[in-house]
C-alpha cells in the first residue's frame, strides 16, 4: 500500500528533475566542468561565487533542483538496472539507488550550509 502512495510522487519528482537537468546542466557542465578549470574563460572570483551561494534564493533553488535531479537519476538508473541489465533484485536495487539519492541530498544540504555560513 505504501508503495502505491509513494510511486506517483517519485514519478513526479523524476519528471521535474528531468526538466531541470535538461535546462540547467548543459551550461553548468560547459562552464564549471570545462571552461573555468581549463582556463577557456576567466573563472569567477571566489568572493562573487560565495555571495551568489549565500543568497537565500540561490540556496533554496540549488537545494530543490539538486534533490530533484538526484531522485530523477536514481529512479531512471533503477529501471536501467531492472530492464537494461536484467538485474531482478528489486528491493536491493531500490534501496541502493534511492539510498544514494538521499545521501546526495544530505551532502547537498551540508555543502550549501557550509557555503552560506562562510560569508
Amino acid at each position: 500500500m505504501t508503495k502505491r502512495r509513494i510511486e506517483p510522487l517519485v514519478w513526479l519528482m523524476f519528471s521535474a528533475g528531468g526538466v531541470l537537468a535538461a535546462v540547467f546542466l548543459p551550461s553548468l557542465i560547459l562552464l564549471f566542468g570545462l571552461a573555468f578549470p581549463l582556463g577557456w574563460l576567466h573563472p569567477p572570483d571566489h568572493a562573487h561565487l560565495l555571495a551568489v551561494l549565500a543568497n537565500p534564493l540561490t540556496f533554496v533553488i540549488l537545494l530543490g533542483s539538486f534533490v530533484l535531479m538526484l531522485v530523477h537519476s536514481a529512479h531512471r538508473f533503477r529501471y536501467t538496472l531492472y530492464d537494461g541489465l536484467q538485474i531482478k533484485m528489486k528491493r536491493t536495487v531500490a534501496v541502493l539507488t534511492y539510498g544514494a539519492a538521499i545521501l546526495g541530498s544530505v551532502a547537498t544540504l551540508g555543502a550549501l550550509w557550509v557555503a552560506a555560513q562562510a560569508l
Partner: peptide
C-alpha cells in the same frame, strides 16, 4: 546527471571552505 550534481556539490563545499 548524478556525477555532475556530485561534482557541483564538491565545488560548492570548496567555495565554502575559502
Amino acid at each position: 546527471v548524478a556525477w555532475f550534481v556530485v561534482y557541483l556539490v564538491v565545488l560548492i563545499y570548496a567555495v565554502g571552505q575559502g
